[in-house]
């Protein structure tokens, strides 16, 4: 079987990629484009962790064949931050403890971004519906819903370029559960 040769836009950048033609978009992103932020979960469309945006809509990259992506416009979690400035969703997720083990987080961030792009002020019910295809086994979803609500409040007033810059030191400086003792 001959390798496939595609041109696609990933995170706003035109990429040309030669890959094994049996690969899914998930495998092309992770193995050929080295974008490992998109996670490998159930591989059967049952968990949502591999969600990316294609033409702005959330889809499951484990079920998209790479050969069908020629000319596609794909956004992965690596495309959310602008330089060092986090996307408001990423900031809100960090602040609210909406990511615990973090494995489901990339798929949830992208799915939530698509929701806010379409509906900047969603209700709790609309957030739950939009994220109903993303399994999280850590948080119980409450912090995730709160983080999306917080991002919806800040997104329009706080452009990404003026947002907080992530520094590795932040991770240490932030109080952790149990520190209050």
């Amino acid at each position: 079987m001959r390798p496939a040769h595609n041109r696609l836009t990933v995170n706003g950048e035109l990429r040309e990629v030669l890959f094994d033609a049996t690969k899914t978009l998930l495998e092309v992103l992770r193995e050929d484009l080295r974008l490992t932020g998109t996670k490998h979960g159930c591989e059967l469309g049952e968990c949502g962790t591999c969600a990316v945006l294609m033409e702005g809509r959330p889809v499951l990259s484990c079920l998209v064949l790479g050969v069908e992506c020629d000319g596609a416009d794909v956004t992965t979690v690596e495309g959310l931050a602008e330089g060092p400035a986090l996307h408001p969703l990423q900031e809100a997720f960090a602040d609210r403890g909406a990511a615990q083990c973090g494995y489901c987080t990339p798929g949830i961030l992208l799915t939530a971004k698509a929701l806010l792009d379409r509906n900047p002020h969603p209700t709790r019910g609309e957030i739950a519906e939009a994220l109903s295809g993303n399994l999280c086994r850590c948080t119980g979803y409450l912090q995730i819903f709160e983080a999306v609500e917080e991002a919806a409040r800040t997104e329009r007033t706080d452009p990404p370029t003026q947002g907080r810059t992530y520094r590795p030191a932040d991770a240490q400086a932030r109080p952790r559960a149990g520190d209050a003792r």
């Binding site: 469309g45 949502g48 959330p58 889809v59 499951l60 079920l63 519906e129 109903s132 295809g133």
Partner: peptide, 9 residues
């Protein structure tokens, strides 16, 4: 049918 992502596909 299924989930929002799967309905987009």
């Amino acid at each position: 049918v299924a989930t929002p992502q799967l309905r987009n596909m």
